[in-house]
Design a protein around this nucleic acid. Sequence first.
RNA 1: GGGCAGUUAGCUCAACUGGUUAGAGCUUUCCGUUUACACCGGAAGGGUUGGGGGUUCGAGCCCCUCACUGCCCACCA
Length: 1072
Amino acid sequence: MLPSGAYNFTETEREILEFWLRNGFFKPEYDPKTDNFISTEELKKKIKSNEITPWSLICPPPNAYARPHIGNLSGYAYQDAMARYARMRGKRVLMIPGKDHAGLEGEGVFVREVLEKQGRYKFQMSRDDFYNEIWEFNVQNKAKALKDEKEMGLSADFDRDIFTLDPRIVDTVLSTFVELYKAGMVYKGVRLVNWDPKARSAIADNQCVREEREGKLYKIKYPIIRRKVWSLGFRESTHLERIISKEKTIETRALNPEEKDRYFGDIFTGDIIVCVDKTDRNSSPIYKKVKNYFQFKNIEDAFTKLDWKNVLDIDRASMLEVEHSYSKLSEGYLEKINKNGLIVFELEDLKEEDFITVATTRPETMFGDTAIAVNPDDIRYSDLQGKRVIIPLTDIDIPIITSPRVLVDYGTGVLKITPAHSQDDFIIMSEWNKENKNKSIGYRNVISKELFLTGNACGKYSGRKYKEALPDILEALKSNGLLVLEETIKQNVLVADRTKALIEPLMSSQWFISVEKFKKPVMDMVKSGEISIHPKNMEEKFFFWMENLRDWAISRSLWWGYRMPVWYKGEIKEEIGENGEVVEFIGNEPLDYSNSNQILVSITHPEAIEAHFLRHAEALHNVDQFIAGVTDTKLTEKGKTKILEIIPKLKSENYNLILYSPLSRAKETASIIAKELGVESIELEFLKERNFGNYEGKSWDEVLQSNPNIDPEKFTLSNDLVNAETTAEVNNRLEELIQNIATKYKGKKLLVVTHAVLIKFLEKKLYNTERPVEISNLERKIIFVPPAISEWRQDENVFDTWFSSGQWPYATLMAWGLFDEYFPTDVMETGFDILENWVSRMVMFSWFRFNKPPFKDVYLHGLVQGADGQKMSKSKGNVVDIDKVRSEFGTDAVRLVYFYQNTAGSSYAFTNDKPKNFRQFNNKLWNAAKYVLQNYFEIFGEKTEFLFNSKSVESEFAKKIIDHIKEVVTQVTKNMDKFQFGLATFNLYQEFWHTFCDKLIEESKIFLKPGEGSKVSQEEKTDVALVMVYALKEYLKLLHPFIPFITEKIWSEVPKNSKEHRSIMFNSTDKN
RNA sequence: GGGCAGUUAGCUCAACUGGUUAGAGCUUUCCGUUUACACCGGAAGGGUUGGGGGUUCGAGCCCCUCACUGCCCACCA
């Protein structure tokens, strides 16, 4: 019987959650037919034989370091509704929850919330120490998220909760990189990074802040190459021939009128004529440029096949590309020309209008300019578009390009473009290059990480600290009359949030994934309908992103995450080449990416020694379940038998040395194996188990009683055990072990017989991860022990978070050994804001590795906003306190807020009138159930089986109710199948309250509570009582995916027949 | 800067891809009931669907245009 009074959700939710978890209903191994569990192996077999239909959803993992926010919680509601709906329809549901290490953000939170509050600093720590601490921080916090997930009613298999840095996930993620590398789809390239000179590290944009500082603005004149540049040398010209052959030297002079008339047609004052010595044509840069420009195979071809007369007359623009000089600006240039056998005739000096004036706060970066930009609509400069200018103090000429980003009325309206040292310029370059592929501009890095000017472009200033060279540069500009203005201004500069150092944007070498090959197949999966995105209009967004996707930089200068499985033989150094290009060196040699003597992609250390670690066979303490540590226990008879069973497997490995712990259980195990295999064995003191101090010999029950807060999972590796061997001591022993394997036993095929906790310590030490699962007796772990001394160094970078989370669906399934059965998954449910970042990456990787989509449907939910309709944020004070709302209105009511009248992809405000309304709805449901059941039990009693067939009712009123139910079921089912949860809950809400309760229940009172003189027959009364229960049960089943707690509670009180499951989770609506 | 949504009753949102009189919840007003439910029932008020134009037998929905609002992208653009 349901208790009278209003619905008590607090108590019910606690009770029902306990009921679900205790019974293991969320596990796919649970078999509702037998109300029992099958083994995972059996489950797999049954799925393969089509005996049961699998359905899976991998939950998007919330960040491990904090409680899930309201967006994650709303996601759980949708995920859960879909899973419960599938489960009720007889599918075998697997829903895997997880937690994300959240690379960049995770590291940022740890540094801010933990280290900085303790006055510590990341770069004062060793990488290992930092990693261990942040790991601990995450482990401690992720329990909170798990609690929230359970309390929201998420029907996921919590035993399979998995962390993104779990070693099983790591293996999969890294192997994908290896595969991509083999397929030639990753490469190293350069991109602009924010260099923090103080931290000596590249940092993310959101780790920088803008600060107002006083700075100086300079205006600098760049000379325009207005004149045409003529190139001669191949043209038949006896006069020039004579000059060249006779003197074999160079002359620079103005052309006299006679020459002009004789050799050139429409030559103008100001043009420059460059002549080339034919005899020196192979070394001349002008020849080379000509060759490249016209794409001749060699210079002879260029010479013989090209009609130079036509070129000169028709295609002057091409000649502009060739070579030219202003002797006035660059004394060194003449010298260069002379060496290369050029003759330069200059017709006239430069004039004032031959300059363009640029405003800049950073004159020292002008050596890195690769263009000058003006606004395309700026009429002042329209005649200059496409012309070239000379960078002052150099002989480098750069084009004048256009960009709508250049503000016409700001400064001079002219911007110098230094892509290697300015974010904005880098963007302008990228945009220009995208639109003007044949006129693309490059970058020139002229500042090193040590803040020196570097490369040829800087001329005599190269090699000096740029701040020290700056006064000299300004002086040189001044003396050439090229510095026109210098004023003090306030400017916003980018500063590192933590170190307060001025950010130096510069080019750095990064790993990229080339994305071109992904585009078509990935888009095709959506176009063909293999993957459906809900709402459909988001597919546009997806295509736009994919089409415009550029190669993806996947390396990040962080410590928290997956370190890249790339190894360099020696220390890698990044330097700036002579022409401003980024070059990497290993030692003194430039890095050649194809040279496997320099670079290797490998998950383990390239010289790692493979050793097999075997846990001893079953010993007495395993049976009696107490903590043995260094307490010596003997093997059981069963244990000894089991050893013999694995001998054939061990034989096939051809071990030639066995190392073992001196404790009896390991020693006995090893001696049996050694005897059977006929292999030498050595006892080593440092292989024994950890000493557990006061806990030695204690049973787990005793441990838990003495300290109820103890987490058995973490106990064995904890450093808080009284009188136990410290973790440092264990690690010292392991150090000795590693040394021994790397030196003494090098070249041996090793089997090491030891203990579970010791193996766990070793894995943690070597792989920086913890095993969440136990190592069973006689389980073998293959461990790669790095050599004691090696030149190989691992890449310092970690992967971009999306690189790993993009593999989440298959990585989780592979980790749990359920890939074959459950992949592709059925649905991916996540926020619409990460469609591009996450969903597209998952499809990309899934296509690459398996040529399959990772899921069939994508449901994108909108974002939950504050009551004011704004995005929730602490500073706005509009954050919904989920605990408060849940305790006031109940979890079911909160869940209904997420569903009711909501459509996929649209955001909605969380106002308290909503859960209040649904609390009332739940109460209505509760009371209606009470009414229906009271009447039923009055007639049938409590313990009777519910015998009812909707086809064989006689009463007109009962038929009316059945019709009503049929219609609701049809409507709701239709909407569920179309992911229209908003409509489904709307239907249910309206029909249940305003039709079923307000109309049908009221009408039923005529039959169930007949007044004086009523003509209602007993049969009719019975019929109505039955059909009302039937209707209630159908409603409960339809409502269950949305409000699981209350429906389960009522279901527990409802009369059932023998075919119905005791939990509502496994009952589908009536098919009749 | 680009892209994507959105603008419907006082407030928060629907309207199942062009089809009856545009519907709900909250709020407001009136009436009623107290053994399923006051976390109730019955009723009422409230809309030129952001402005303007177009296509159509028919437009909240499609097209054009203007005006706002929100979101995403920043070691990705």
